[in-house]
């Protein structure tokens, strides 16, 4: 260590302070957000959180573990429908339907993950694409239960409304839903982050990068891959369940193939195999629309996202966060070069 321990630890402290301040600012912003905007915008923020949960799961699977899924809309749908059905037909409390939706999505994820042990790469993408195309058809097929294209609408007490104590504090229904989703998303984010940074996460990445050596190192590739699939699906399911409550219901056209693609878009735009990427991507897929001029809304978004995906793959496969990191690294390098004569060849 040539630069001396003092300056390194000083730099560490500075970085840590930056981090803490950043997190505080972020926390305040996330807390204040629903208090500053009107109801429909808050509902959109909650949608962002639902998508972010699903994208977080998808990123764990595709980004960190290398299993390509073009069908996470189906798992989202499983969570959304189990919540809607249980609350509207069995009268379950909302929290219980979210838990069961998560469990169901987890189990289905495990089941889909099993064939994924043999089916890889583009072929797994194909299977999941077919699954995502099939899912809305299943909903329509069992219209007598699911309401088909009409969907299920939650009424009265079935809805996830602000409880009395929160109402007393002036928190509206849409704000309450936002905070619930925020808590769930933050917990999920921390869990995923800790998993990925742990030994388990290193195993996942080793499997992604090359399965055979991972196996030789004694990593039980099969168990890891199937469990990752299950957890990934579970996160999508939780997102779906929250989505149902945020919208007071769900319908078949919400969970079609477009949703699966949108989730993939969120992951890719934000940055594959990053932590904050899925959230950034989810925000963009929900809000990009509103940046377009009035007459283009609803038309331009898919085209823009499609082209954006292609351009990102051409120029910056790391997505937005990848770009930021790249620029950051360049800047940092320039500064460190200015500091001292570089010994980089």
């Amino acid at each position: 260590m040539t630069s001396g321990d003092g300056s390194v630890s000083a730099r560490n402290v500075r970085a840590r302070v930056f981090k803490i301040v950043g997190f505080l600012v972020l926390a305040v912003a996330l807390y204040e957000l629903p208090l500053q905007y009107d109801r429909s915008t808050v509902t959109k923020f909650t949608t962002v959180l639902c998508y972010a949960l699903a994208a977080l799961g998808l990123n764990l699977l595709t980004g960190f573990n290398g299993q390509i899924s073009v069908g996470h809309g189906a798992f989202f749908g499983i969570g959304a429908y189990s919540a809607a059905l249980l609350v509207s037909q069995r009268g379950w409390p909302a929290w219980a339907t979210i838990v069961l939706g998560a469990v169901l999505a987890f189990v289905v994820g495990l089941i889909v993950g099993l064939p994924a042990l043999r089916i890889r790469g583009v072929y797994l993408a194909l299977v999941t694409l077919a699954l995502a195309t099939l899912f809305p058809a299943v909903i329509v097929r069992y219209s007598d239960v699911t309401g088909g294209t009409q969907g299920i609408t939650l009424e009265g007490k079935q809805r996830l409304n602000s409880p009395q104590f929160a109402r007393d504090a002036g928190i509206t229904n849409s704000q309450w839903r936002y905070y619930i989703a925020l808590v769930v998303a933050v917990v999920a984010f921390i869990l995923v982050r800790n998993v990925v940074k742990s030994r388990v996460g290193r195993a996942l990445i080793a499997i992604r990068d090359n399965e055979t050596p991972a196996e030789v190192l004694g990593i039980n590739v099969g168990v890891y891959k199937v469990l990752t699939f299950g957890i990934s699906a579970m996160l999508a399911g939780v997102g779906g369940a929250l989505f149902t409550f945020n919208n007071d219901g769900v319908a078949a056209d919400v969970v079609d193939i477009q949703l699966s693609i949108i989730l993939l878009v969120a992951v890719v735009i934000g940055g594959v195999a990053t932590f904050a990427g899925p959230a950034i991507g989810a925000f963009l897929v929900v809000f990009l629309e509103s940046f377009f001029p009035e007459n283009l809304r609803g038309k331009a978004a898919p085209v823009v996202f499609g082209i954006l995906l292609i351009l990102l793959m051409m120029a910056a496969p790391g997505g937005i966060l990848g770009l930021v990191k790249q620029q950051w690294a360049k800047l940092a390098q320039r500064f460190s070069r200015a500091d001292q004569p570089s010994h980089v060849a």
């Binding site: 390509i68 073009v70 583009v122 993408a125 693609i261 993939l264 878009v265 890719v268 898919p302 085209v303 996202f305 499609g306 082209i307 954006l308 995906l309 292609i310 793959m313 051409m314």
Partner: peptide
């Protein structure tokens, strides 16, 4: 490449 063809799909 998968993502690019999905992007093409979407566009």
């Amino acid at each position: 490449v998968v993502i690019a063809t999905i992007g093409l799909f979407l566009a």
